[in-house]
Every structure is written in structure tokens, then in C-alpha cells.
């Protein structure tokens, strides 16, 4: 089997904030009735987490689950666990109207760390990134410059941006420009 590589193979950029591609990650799109007990059981068994509330991320011992829309979740696990997780969820959701798909190789993930990482994002997305409006375990699907992306906050103050793999270079480039030294805004802190 060929060796799997992430979109930009861990590219990094150090400006006033740091932008880094996080490498391979297992991502599974799940659609179905989020309120059903089958869904709750499937998510619990795969990640150890509960089904998240609107625009929230819940982290369990085996992975994380993010709320994407009223009928869609994103399950995040280790890259090499993704296929097994898909099989496990399909088994748990058998008989109910649901879809489980491994999208690990169709996405790219970037992590933004350092002071001013909120400003880096605020320059690119029409989203309120103020501390009181957007914090840890919040997720927001929006756009980064001209392409769709999702952003979530981590407990350590960093942010992660998920985009389609086909636009990974574009997203990395605009994040780079936004994080360039000389472009500090010092607004959101």
C-alpha cells in the first residue's frame, strides 16, 4: 500500500502567530438523526464522547465529535483508526437512516497558535472571534477568504481550521499573509 501523506506534509509558517498543517488525521462525516439513541450509542462507542450541542465540540477518550449542522457530525479520530471507526459506526447505525463516510484524505487541517491567532482568523472570516463570543470547544463553519472552512477552538487557546484538501495551499497561503509580521492588529488579543 502506498504511504499516506497529508495535503502539505506538515508545512509551517512563523509570523506573529504560528500556522502549521497538522498532518494526517482521521475524519469521518456522519449524517443522520442526531437525537436518536442509535446515534448517541454509535458516537459514544467510537469516541467516548456524547453527541455535541449546537456548534459545539465534545472530546472523548478515543476522539472528538463536532456539530456541523442539525443532521451532520464530524468525528475526529487517529488517522489509522478511521476505517475501523467507520465500520464500527456503520454497524451501530445499521437499520437507521444514516450515512458514515471516511473523509480523512479529502480534508486538510491547520493549527494556529500564538498571541494574535484570533486576529489572524478575524481578518479572513466573517465571524466574531472575540473571547466571549468564541472559545474552547466552539465550532463555526464559515469561509476563510473565498473558500468554505470550519474553525474550532482548543482548550489551550489554539485554533484549528479544516478545509477541503483541494484548497489546502490556498488556505495556507492566506493564513500566512494574515499572520505576517507587520500585520498585527492587537485587537482581539
Amino acid at each position: 500500500m502506498s504511504k499516506a501523506v497529508s495535503a502539505l506534509d506538515g508545512a509551517t509558517f512563523e509570523g506573529f502567530a504560528k500556522v502549521a498543517e497538522t498532518g494526517l488525521r482521521g475524519m469521518i462525516t456522519v449524517r443522520g438523526d442526531l437525537a436518536s439513541k442509535e446515534m448517541a450509542a454509535a458516537v459514544k462507542a467510537t469516541t467516548g464522547a456524547a453527541v455535541p450541542a449546537q456548534r459545539k465540540v465534545v472530546t472523548g477518550d478515543k476522539g472528538a465529535v463536532a456539530w456541523m449542522s442539525p443532521d451532520e457530525l464530524l468525528v475526529v479520530v487517529d488517522y489509522d483508526q478511521a476505517e475501523a471507526a467507520v465500520a464500527q459506526m456503520n454497524e451501530a447505525l445499521k437499520g437507521s437512516h444514516a450515512l458514515v463516510a471516511n473523509v480523512s484524505d479529502a480534508r486538510a487541517v491547520f493549527r494556529l497558535t500564538g498571541d494574535g491567532n484570533r486576529d489572524v482568523l478575524a481578518k479572513l472570516a466573517p465571524v466574531d472571534f472575540a473571547h466571549e463570543a468564541f472559545g474552547a470547544d466552539d465550532i463555526r463553519r464559515s469561509r476563510i477568504a473565498q473558500v468554505p472552512a470550519a474553525v474550532w477552538g482548543n482548550a489551550d487557546g489554539s485554533f484549528e481550521v479544516i478545509c477541503f484538501r483541494s484548497v489546502a495551499q490556498y488556505v495556507f497561503d492566506v493564513l500566512k499573509v494574515s499572520a505576517e509580521v507587520g500585520g498585527e492588529v492587537n485587537h482581539l488579543g
Binding site: Q54, S69, P126, S142, R143
Partner: peptide, 12 residues
């Protein structure tokens, strides 16, 4: 009304 977000025009 589905995700509760106050979205501005460019996101819609």
C-alpha cells in the same frame, strides 16, 4: 434558524 449563527451576506 438551523445553526443559530448570525450570518452576514457573504456567507449566504
Amino acid at each position: 434558524p438551523y445553526c443559530g449563527v448570525w450570518a452576514e451576506e457573504t456567507e449566504l
